[in-house]
Simulated scan of single mutants.
Amino acid sequence: MNIAHNNKYVFKTDEFEYKFTFDRNLSKYELRKITNYVRQKAGIETDSFPTPETTPTKEATNRLTGLPNLHHSIRKTLQKRRKQHEKFRDFIVCKDSLRNKKRTRLVLSSHRVLGVQIKKDTPVYEVALSQISEVEIRGGIIKELWLFTTNGTRKVWQVPPDTGPEFKDKIEDEMGKPIRRNKAEVDADQSLNVSRSELQSLMQNLDSYDFEYFVADLWEERGWDTEVSPRSGDAGVDIVATRGHQSEQKQVIQTKRYGPNTSVGGPEIQQYASLQLQFPDADEVLVVTTGSFTGAAEERAEELDVLLVDGRELTLLVEDHDFTAVLSSYLTDAQKQQG
Rank of each mutant, 00 (worst) to 15 (best):
65 T>V: 01
110 S>W: 11
2 N>Y: 05
267 P>L: 03
19 K>P: 00
317 L>M: 14
14 D>R: 09
133 S>A: 07
223 G>A: 12
47 D>V: 05
302 E>S: 15
8 K>A: 06
187 D>E: 12
93 V>S: 15
234 D>Y: 07
168 K>C: 09
203 M>Q: 12
51 T>H: 02
203 M>F: 09
37 Y>S: 10
306 V>G: 01
276 Q>W: 01
136 E>L: 11
115 G>R: 06
46 T>W: 01
117 Q>D: 06
233 G>I: 00
116 V>P: 03
168 K>M: 06
313 E>C: 02
173 D>E: 13
4 A>D: 00
286 L>V: 10
192 L>E: 12
124 V>A: 08
16 F>N: 10
175 M>T: 10
124 V>C: 15
228 V>A: 05
52 P>F: 07
215 V>I: 15
134 E>R: 12
9 Y>T: 01
171 I>P: 01
251 Q>V: 04
121 D>Y: 09
159 V>G: 00
278 Q>H: 10
249 Q>H: 02
290 T>C: 13
72 H>E: 13
235 A>L: 13
163 T>L: 06
110 S>H: 09
180 R>H: 05
306 V>E: 05
108 L>R: 04
211 F>G: 01
302 E>T: 12
49 F>Y: 10
117 Q>A: 01
197 S>Y: 10
210 D>G: 04
54 T>Q: 12
27 S>C: 09
41 K>C: 11
164 G>D: 06
159 V>Y: 06
127 V>H: 05
160 P>L: 09
242 T>M: 11
170 K>A: 14
261 N>Y: 13
29 Y>L: 12
143 K>G: 02
254 Q>I: 03
137 I>A: 03
